[in-house]
Design a protein around this nucleic acid. Structure first.
Lengths: 148, 148
DNA sequence: ATAAATGCAAAGACTTTGCAGCGGC
DNA sequence: GCCGCTGCAAAGTCTTTGCATTTAT
């Protein structure tokens, strides 16, 4: 069972890479896997690098950056600059959602709102632009979470 | 007339600095002035630095960064990361507007939309956050502009 | 076999910091 | 005169690049 699941994911990754015209290599498959399995699926290059090392996969940090940049170009991942310092990456499912970041805990949630997207297109038009993409980042304080 | 205007601005800047608990120094006044006079008022530290040098004001780039960071902390300017590489700064009038960037020319326009801001507050609430701030950057292509 | 991908170390872009001296108040 | 501010150069952080070697196809 576990095996089957694992193979499936690997096949999926293989297809993604082929489609992007990239060779199917171990580092790339592993990076894809890490991105898929990560829970708060926003990882920095460093995060991914550490994960690789922790699992005895000797991949250079430079390779992680190179692969992520290629993935970005291929539309496989999206790069964000939430905090300011490090860039974070997440798989791009094509749904182009937006984010809200808790200023205390760093927790990141996602959302997608058609109403807003429609209005943004209108605004762009009014200003004389054709909208091709957008980024919304909300900053707030997450409450509840049973304190913490 | 010009003199009067100039003095007025300087006094204004002086007040801004005092309010922020910062000493009123020439570099700081000049940087404020540059930010006020700039047309596409989104300048990188480097832009400001070059402007200073071009006007025979020998201010170090480090000082420009330091001053801008202090201004940011004091709420005098806002820092943005549009492109990815350099940060750009603009005076913060407290209106907290958003931006749209032309992917071809780099032209930046601003807008403010109450409808969107209202909706964003709702969205944050729905997700369990109290919204404190937001950033919206639209990417598009500016048309008209008589070609270029 | 061949062109692409990787690892390492070195370089780069942008920004911050340490410290001696200068400048408001 | 005091303490903060500045300039310079040096260090930092994050990311990219050059090059010899390895690897997928």
């Amino acid at each position: 069972m576990v095996e089957v699941t694992h193979l499936k994911r690997e096949e999926q990754g293989t297809r993604d890479l082929r489609r992007a015209g990239l060779k199917v290599t171990l580092p790339r498959l592993r990076i894809l896997e890490i991105l898929e399995e990560s829970d708060p699926h926003h990882l920095s290059a460093e995060d991914i690098y550490k994960d690789l090392l922790a699992n005895d996969h000797d991949v250079g940090l430079a390779t992680v950056y190179r692969v992520l940049t290629q993935f970005e170009g291929a539309g496989i991942v999206t790069r964000h600059h939430f905090a300011g310092g490090q860039a974070v990456f997440e798989l791009d499912n094509g749904d182009n959602h937006d984010h809200i970041v808790c200023m205390k805990s760093g927790k990141v949630s996602e959302f997608k709102d058609p109403q807003i997207e429609e209005r943004l297109i209108e605004i762009a038009e009014e200003l004389g632009y054709s909208l091709t993409d957008h980024r919304i980042v909300l900053y707030g304080v997450y409450r509840d979470e049973s304190d913490s």
